[in-house]
Amino acid sequence: MRSQYAIKQLSVFLENRKGRLKELTETLYQAGVNIRALALAESAEFGILRLVVDNPEKARSVLSSAGFTVKEQDVFAVEVEDKPGGFYQVVKILSEADINVDYTYAFVGGGERAVLIFKVPDEDLERAMEILSAGGIKLVEPLFFYGA
């Protein structure tokens, strides 16, 4: 399932320094990369920006050349109904399967659907996708993010 549903997420190390986020987004803009989803994790001194973009290879290459430290990781996305309990259903299944969620972020895609992105330990990724799929949760294909 990994080959079919895994989504390439880029994590970028950022010092908490003025103008750094602007430089990053400017780099992506100039390369014509579209950010589909993002989340920012931060500590007092530094942060990590997580990005799902339409063209991960290109994004990675332009960011590296611009001096950013970038790590690519596999995550997966699910689509749920945009109503109470949507998020709960997914987390419940993962929790019952004893799969720890490293972090998750969501974006509301318009209409009645919400898309949730999950990062779980890499060794649990395959199993997480399988049990969610078996539990009736709709996994989102990468094309949803990468496609123009």
């Binding site: 994590s11 190390f13 942060g47 990590i48 590296s64 430290t69």
Partner: peptide, 10 residues
């Protein structure tokens, strides 16, 4: 923090 050290994890 270069790519040898950075795991993507805070």
């Amino acid at each position: 923090v270069d790519e040898r050290i950075f795991t993507g994890d805070l």
